[in-house]
Simulated scan of single mutants.
Amino acid sequence: MAVAVGVILVVAISIQWALIILIRRVSRHAIERGPGHSLFGESVDLVPEGTRDRERREARITTLSAVARSAVAIFVWTWAGLAILSELGVQVGPLVASAGVAGVALGFGAQSLVKDFLSGIFMLIEDQYGVGDSIDVGDAVGTVEGVSLRLTTIRDVDGTLWFVRNGLIQRVGNSTKGHAVARIDVPVGLSNDVEEAKKAIGDAARAAAADEGLKDSILSEPEVDGVHALAVDHLLIRVRVKVVAGTQWATRRELLGRIITDLQRQGISVPYPNGIGISAEPSTTAGTAGPTGPTVKEN
């Protein structure tokens, strides 16, 4: 009996050791393979990996490796314990049946918790998002500050920290993974020639994209789509540019400011360039604010 128990222990230790070595080698290979492939081997089209992306990927793979090693230890030593009890003459059948019933009861009672953990595991495997990403999960939009197997914590633009259970997340929009598109809608007065305005906007956007402060964030040349919308007092001309994910908002603000400045320099008017109801030249008609103030037109 003692020999049999010893053999079981040796086999359990050997199996656990072999599986843990296999898990560690797979994890190390996944880390060294780089961002061009997922954990399942398929190719993924991503921009070059930065330091933060590499650290996040290594943390994700390390977490999955730890979960896998824990699962292996539970499985192997559960089997070993039952085998040793059987060798000692204990009837393991009732124990297994009782464990099955207890497992079913626990599953019903904690099904939401199990769902959260399973969702968290698949989220890590698929690398849907990580710490530092800007995501939209439906009820909360913001920057991820923490990720665990059960919870995702998100800080929104107002500073509110949201705790979202992974099992309740039905969809995820990640604005900081791979690449993004900055869309700039430039308002132009109706009195302008559309083709001239489009050319001026395109030239201004390309000049701004070549600037030292922006070119590292821009992945392709800006494209002018044309008139996107028409209102009673202006039209919108849309410009699109492919950028590094996470930089689309800053790029949009910077490009819009530079485009408007270039349009004014070239004589392309924007809606109400002097403010609504404010004339560009002083007038002697009624309604003036004085010799040095702006002239307000009366209806």
Rank of each mutant, 00 (worst) to 15 (best):
A68Y: 12
D53I: 07
I169V: 12
I84R: 09
S43E: 14
L263D: 07
G41T: 11
R252S: 04
K177F: 03
V224L: 02
V157P: 04
L113I: 11
E281K: 09
A289I: 08
A30L: 02
F122E: 11
S191C: 12
K242D: 05
E42A: 09
M123T: 10
V11I: 14
D211R: 03
D139M: 05
A80W: 13
F122H: 11
A71C: 08
A18R: 04
P271C: 06
L95E: 11
F117M: 14
L214C: 05
Y272T: 07
G6I: 04
R265M: 11
G34F: 13
G103R: 02
E58H: 05
G167H: 08
H234R: 15
A83Q: 10
K297H: 12
S148A: 00
G167M: 05
D216T: 10
A231T: 10
N274G: 03
V137S: 00
G202I: 06
D53A: 15
V147Q: 00
V232W: 09
S86C: 08
K242E: 05
R240F: 02
F40S: 11
V67R: 13
N299R: 09
L149V: 10
N274W: 12
S269G: 03
G142W: 03
G107V: 04
E32C: 01
T160M: 06
D53P: 06
L255E: 07
S220T: 06
L113N: 04
D116I: 12
D216R: 15
D193K: 04
I121D: 01
G130P: 01
D158N: 07
H228I: 00
A204Y: 07
I169A: 00
Q264V: 10
L9G: 08
G293I: 00
L39H: 09
A105D: 02
A231V: 03
R33E: 08
I13P: 04
A245M: 00
E87G: 05
R33T: 11
G159I: 06
A30T: 01
D133M: 01
A97V: 08
L256R: 15
G290Y: 14
A182P: 02
V7C: 04
I15F: 02
R206T: 10
I184D: 03
W17E: 13
E87F: 10
Y272D: 14
V243H: 07
I201M: 09
G293L: 03
V144C: 05
L190F: 05
E32K: 14
N192W: 07
T251G: 00
S119H: 15
V11G: 10
W77A: 07
N274R: 14
D116W: 10
G6S: 13
I184L: 13
S175M: 06
S119G: 14
I125V: 12
L255Y: 04
A99Y: 08
V144F: 02
G132Y: 01
W17T: 04
H234F: 13
N174F: 01
G130T: 00
A97K: 15
P273H: 13
T78G: 11
A200F: 08
I61F: 13
Q170M: 10
